[in-house]
Write a protein that binds this DNA or RNA. Sequence first.
DNA 1: GCCAACGTTGGC
DNA 2: GCCAACGTTGGC
Length: 137
Amino acid sequence: MNHWLIKSEPFVYSFGDLQREGKIMWDGVRNYAARNHLRAMKTGDLVLFYHSREGLEVVGICKVEREHYPDPTAESGDWSVVDFVPVKAFQKPVSLQTIKGIPELQNIGLIRIGRLSVMPLEQSEFNIILELGETSL
DNA sequence: GCCAACGTTGGC
DNA sequence: GCCAACGTTGGC
């Protein structure tokens, strides 16, 4: 089982939207690094959901329900989507500021590669963020 | 609104 | 195949 973190602008699509709708096809990724991470996701992998631009915090957990398939919104190029379903919202959102203050989290993509929208996490990193969010599976 | 970081494009 | 110019993302 692998662990991941995805970013979304909440005014475009929020974790609350995912909870309401029950499922989302994660389309529109047009960055090769992010696409390759999508393709590496396996059914059941756990994914943290981060709100970018507004909120700036990890707000919930979702999981991969369907592994990658071609992005139907792509007019050209070789792009992929996966389907996510919500698992649970964090008891307490974990802010970017908090994450920046944790030495063990300095290597995550969220800190190191600001523009990356889909990134892998070590299990240890995933667990630390869950703890900070006062949330367990 | 600014700007740093990064990816992409296109001329050579 | 290099690299300058440009566009986009996203924190501040």
